[in-house]
Design a binder for these strands. Structure first.
Lengths: 209, 209, 209, 209
DNA sequence: AATGAATGAGAGTTCATTCAT
DNA sequence: TATGAATGAACTCTCATTCAT
């Protein structure tokens, strides 16, 4: 789907407002005002507030699917390295789309809009499949243990990242990072998360001692 | 704060509706109808919809604070066992208050109401302190490594549980558990989560090899 | 259905406005303003503008059904007299509910609202049945001819009255009755219509010469 | 007034929609979509929705005026035959322009647009004049009685036809004609109406016995 | 103490129309 | 000449809250 500049502006503004006030807490007037467009434009361009949300989800879920084809074929990286690369990719994707992921979290709880639900379901399914390919590959190579609950593992990964993301302010305060620029904090968190998740996978995928 | 039966009923109903439709997606009329009380009762008893939310948070956050005093003193349990016991306690608390935790997740994202914010902040702070005591105890006993980010670890714990909780339906579908009673599924998930988190802590708290 | 004073006032105002501006040409605000009530009252009392219309139809169609039971039994009146009495009754009913009949005419053309449609259909069916009883009675007594299209006859009756009613202003102008009070004009028209319809029935029900 | 093909298409489409949904119930977008033209075309070609309505009335009222000049001069037809011929002409005109007559009926009730009002007034005045000529001719020839209310008679004629026209579906159902093609039903009704109106005029124009 | 009645404010949406091209 | 883009105004309806009782 191709959007013109105004439509893109509306989408960006909607994303920003939905992520801070929630879908139901954001009025069409809010979006129009913040985007500097006429109220009628939202219906005019997207049909309805609901469909604007759907358009946002279609837009944003399109390019956040992870791809592992080339990674799988690469024989010079070990299975553990592959998992680490994938995890880092997921961390980056979530962190670079913070606002949208916040919206997703809430929508997952509320799950009112079926179109949105389906898009989220598809996204998760696709990502889980790719995640599964990496794990299975490691299992087939005898590096990972057999009995692994892909979905649980994936949820631990995504949950950890999400939780960090939505409590970032507390994290800054707790660690006296309020004076450090937001972006720098995020980089720091990404690094730490990455390290910890590396250890997590190492522990959960290896044969127990 | 003491509530009479009607007030309790309103609180329970509000919790149920807020957790499925969100705060802004739930109308006072919805709550009144579902609770079988007069619309004016909500304002009458709680002052406003906003204050009802606050009352709900006061009520529900009161008894979910973890306590570790007695656990700390118990010399017959190892630091790792103590962490495991605490983790299990947290899993149980979140899982047994699923609805409220869903509300909390969304509110954490939206963070509009300052009273609610403070209560959440306090809760987390308290729990984090207790969590910290256990960790520090283990560190002092030389069992846990020194450089540990308490908050990150705590977030990984809570995030993992939360993520499982809000995607429980997908989990059931993915693992062909749709025919198994909900409660049974939850027990199964609790057990699995518990095991994995045990491994997680083991890995993240131990001195690296 | 029992309505309180305010509800009745809304109904009367709505009837007046619908009959002069049409249903779609009348806004809820129009009605509220004219009735001197808050806009929200319409939805509050009737649910919606559409349902207000339905309530109006339910109210107004209830007491305009003609009854011929007692008339039928009366042996001292001839079949022709009975038809005349019924016709006069119908003229009176339509003329005394001019506004509502105007609304009905337009709705019959537009026929959008199924509830309204059904009520109109029922009303017509009932009235036609009663009309039919009188005719059949006259036929059985050998006074009226056999081959009579009840519905066509009924439509001629109702159509004649309706047409007079909606073009009353033209009638006044054409006959220089603009200075005569409206009510007096109506009485005059009723009398004339009555006479003409008497002749009409005489001609259409009798055996041809 | 000359209209190009697109304008004609808009007029036809507007007529169709106005007759089924009413003027206020039809949006400019409805018309544009149904006619397959750009929305802006309506304003561009006709100035406004209101003026489109006026154009429609100008178009449609032009060729439905009855003409009796030649009929009057024809000495081989009796006054009664002349009235019958005129009545049949009116029946045909109304029946062949069903949609427009439906619009006219509603507009007569609502009478909001003064231009439309005037056109309807003129049409009726002209037709009434012609009707009057025929009646007067018959009176002068001593065939019709003296005391005749032209307008009342005309209204009975038009009202009877109109009423049949707008309740055609009920007529079909009532007489089990739902399976017979619409056009055939109309022919049947025209014939019946014609016969009955013949009798009606005979009775109302003759000297009473 | 409790509630039915009532309401101002604001919600999302559609409207007829205009304007730049 | 013709139209896609755009818009202010108005639409119906729902909202949380208040008030008289």
């Amino acid at each position: 789907m191709e959007y013109n500049e105004k439509q893109k502006q509306i989408l960006v503004t909607a994303e920003q407002l939905f992520s801070t006030k929630g879908f139901d807490g954001t009025s069409v007037r809010d979006i129009a005002d913040a985007a500097g467009v006429n109220i009628a434009m939202i219906s005019y361009y997207f049909g309805s507030k609901e469909k604007l949300m759907e358009a946002l989800f279609e837009q944003r879920t399109t390019n956040i699917k992870v791809k592992v084809e080339s990674l799988l074929k690469d024989d010079s990286t070990t299975p553990f390295q592959k998992v680490e690369i994938l995890a880092e990719d997921i961390i980056n994707k979530i962190m670079s789309k913070k606002q949208f992921f916040k919206i997703m979290m809430c929508e997952q709880v509320i799950n009112k809009n079926p179109v949105v639900m389906n898009l989220m379901y598809d996204l998760k399914k696709k990502n889980l499949e790719e995640f599964g390919k990496i794990i299975t590959d490691g299992q087939q190579k005898g590096v990972f243990k057999k009995d692994i609950d892909f979905l649980l593992l994936y949820n631990m990964l995504v949950g950890s990242i999400s939780q960090m993301m939505i409590t970032i302010d507390q994290y800054r305060e707790y660690n006296n990072l309020t004076n450090i620029p937001e972006e720098q904090v995020y980089e720091q968190i990404k690094k730490k998360l990455s390290e910890n998740i590396k250890v997590l996978f190492k522990a959960l995928l290896s044969y127990e001692a």
